[in-house]
């Protein structure tokens, strides 16, 4: 017996009646169309997922701050220990214009109408020595020994609203300028120093530092899209420049 020839005969017998169905070509083409549709659906799902993943952070970065409630736009991981949940309005110092007139400003502070505590414009002081009351809501820290030079001044020009607050005292001086409006490309748009700026971060945002015109130091950054902040300090307060900047939450 020759195994190879027997194997050939066995195979031939096995498949003698086997023929392809007449619809084989149609079946193959239908299978191809189904596969192509599946691949396209999968690609679409992947593209949609990627777009969603990319759009969520973009949307959040572009989302405008809810009026009057700076806490809702503040990232949770940047909450400072100095932030106070409830504060009375600043006696003698106005709120920023945008906060006073905005419809979503929320309920007034519970202590509104009560006489300022601690007397004399100083307000209660934090254990760290900074003045935390008697300030606009968006400023949470100032070094001690400073008093408001004048109520915060708001001006509007070229589509930008500028609020300037200044404090002076034995401990030097501090000036905080808040600019709201479009057209900012980065902190360099706010920098008025002539020297070479240094790089820093304020609450995770890129910032530029430099000498202030005249004296002192300053730091500029974009708190969010369309909101620029410049903090300048001189005298002893210049040593607390970055701490003051970290306390500005427009």
């Amino acid at each position: 017996m020759e195994l190879e020839s027997e194997l050939r005969k066995a195979m031939a017998e096995q498949v003698a009646g086997t023929t392809a169905t007449p619809s084989l070509v149609t079946d193959v083409k239908r299978r191809h169309r189904r596969r192509r549709a599946r691949v396209q659906a999968a690609a679409g799902a992947v593209a949609a997922s990627v777009a969603a993943l990319a759009l969520v952070p973009t949307y959040q970065s572009f989302r405008a701050a809810p009026a009057g409630n700076s806490e809702t736009v503040r990232p949770s991981n940047t909450v400072s220990a100095l932030r106070m949940p409830e504060r009375p309005p600043a006696p003698g110092l106005p709120q920023t214009p945008s906060e006073r007139g905005r419809p979503g400003a929320g309920a007034p502070p519970k202590s509104e109408g009560r006489p300022p505590q601690g007397g004399g414009g100083g307000g209660p002081r934090r254990p760290g020595g900074g003045v935390v009351d008697g300030l606009p809501r968006w400023i949470t820290y100032l070094p001690s020994g400073l008093a408001a030079a004048a109520p915060c001044a708001a001006t509007e020009a070229a589509g930008r609203k500028t609020t300037t607050c200044r404090w002076v005292g034995d401990g030097g001086w501090v000036e905080i300028v808040l600019v709201k409006g479009g057209g900012f490309t980065g902190p360099q748009d706010l920098m008025k120093s002539t020297g070479i700026p240094g790089h820093a971060t304020v609450r995770g945002m890129p910032a530029l530092t430099g000498d202030h015109v005249g004296s002192g130091r300053q730091v500029c950054w974009l708190a969010r899209r369309g909101v620029g902040v410049t903090v300048a300090a001189g005298g002893q307060a210049a040593g607390d420049l970055m701490r003051i900047a970290e306390g500005v939450r427009p």
């Binding site: 096995q14 498949v15 086997t18 392809a20 169905t21």
Partner: peptide, 25 residues
């Protein structure tokens, strides 16, 4: 011819038809 080859390699006609369609696709 291809179906017969597939049937001999698979051992079952139904599997052979399925695999042949996949291969042709």
């Amino acid at each position: 011819a291809l179906l017969r080859t597939a049937a001999l390699m698979c051992g079952a006609r139904q599997d052979a038809e399925d695999i042949l369609q996949t291969a042709l696709e």
